[in-house]
Lab assay of single mutants.
Amino acid sequence: KEWNEKELQKLHCAFASLPKHKPGFWSEVAAAVGSRSPEECQRKYMENP
């Protein structure tokens, strides 16, 4: 399903605030978004950083 504005906001906010070198980075991003898997978050971010 399409990403909504709130999900995208959470994605970018989590990406900006979490340490990128940490193992499980995308899992933490997904936990912050709440409604998406780590894979979905990574794919979406890579599509549209």
Rank of each mutant, 00 (worst) to 15 (best):
M46H: 12
E5Y: 11
N4L: 04
E28W: 06
E28R: 12
L11V: 01
E2A: 07
S17Q: 09
G24L: 11
S37D: 08
H21A: 12
K6W: 06
H21W: 09
R36E: 02
A31Y: 09
E40F: 00
H21R: 13
A31S: 12
N48T: 15
L18E: 06
H12S: 08
K10C: 11
C41T: 02
V29W: 00
Q9V: 09
C41R: 00
V33R: 01
L11S: 00
E47I: 04
E40A: 05
C13Q: 15
F25N: 07
S17I: 06
R43I: 09
L11W: 07
P23S: 13
N48L: 14
V29C: 07
P49A: 11
S17M: 06
S37V: 02
N48S: 11
Y45Q: 12
H12A: 14
A14C: 06
L18W: 04
G34K: 09
A32W: 11
G24Y: 07
A14I: 14
Q9D: 13
H12M: 07
A30I: 00
V29R: 01
L11D: 01
E7M: 01
S27M: 09
S35H: 11
N48F: 07
W26N: 03
E7H: 00
C41Q: 00
W3R: 02
P49M: 02
E39T: 14
A32H: 12
P38T: 08
Y45H: 15
E28N: 11
N4A: 06
A31I: 11
K20V: 06
N4K: 10
S27L: 11
P38L: 07
E5T: 15
K22Y: 05
R36L: 01
S35V: 05
V29S: 02
P23V: 11
P49W: 04
K1T: 11
Q9P: 00
F15W: 10
K22H: 14
R43D: 10
L11T: 01
L11C: 02
A32M: 15
R43E: 14
V29I: 12
C41D: 01
P23G: 07
M46C: 10
A30M: 00
Y45R: 06
S27F: 13
N48D: 15
H21M: 15
K20R: 13
W3G: 03
E7W: 00
A16V: 07
H21C: 13
A16S: 11
F15D: 07
P19G: 13
K6N: 13
E28T: 09
Y45L: 12
K44L: 07
K20M: 12
F25G: 05
H12N: 08
K22A: 09
E7N: 02
E39A: 13
Q9Y: 03
W26K: 04
G24M: 11
H21K: 13
K1N: 15
E40L: 00
A32P: 01
M46A: 13
K44A: 09
E40W: 00
P23T: 09
N48G: 12
P19F: 02
P19M: 05
N4E: 05
M46Y: 09
W26S: 04
W26Y: 02
K22S: 08
P49K: 02
E47R: 07
K10W: 03
E47K: 08
P19Q: 14
Q42L: 04
F15E: 11
Q9A: 13
N4S: 09
A14N: 06
E39S: 11
P49R: 15
S37N: 05
R36K: 14
P23D: 11
C41H: 01
A32C: 10
G34P: 02
E47S: 10
K1D: 06
C13K: 13
Q9I: 07
K44P: 01
L18R: 07
L11N: 01
E47C: 05
A30F: 00
S27A: 13
H21E: 15
E2Q: 14
S35L: 05
Q9F: 07
S17D: 15
E39M: 10
P38N: 04
C13S: 15
K22D: 11
M46N: 13
R36P: 02
S27I: 08
G34L: 02
C41W: 00
A31N: 06
A14L: 03
F15G: 08
K44S: 04
F15T: 15
A31Q: 13
E28I: 07
A16R: 10
A16D: 03
K44G: 03
V29Y: 00
E47N: 11
L18I: 08
S35Q: 13
Q9S: 09
V29G: 01
V29L: 04
P38W: 06
G34F: 03
A16N: 12
V33G: 02
E7A: 01
W26T: 03
P49S: 10
K22M: 12
K1E: 06
Y45A: 15
C13G: 15
P23Y: 06
N4Y: 02
S35I: 05
E2I: 12
A32K: 13
W3C: 00
P23E: 15
V29P: 01
S17V: 06
K44Q: 12
G24H: 09
E47H: 06
A14P: 00
E40Q: 10
P23H: 13
Q9R: 10
L18P: 03
E40M: 03
V33L: 05
K20E: 13
S37Q: 09
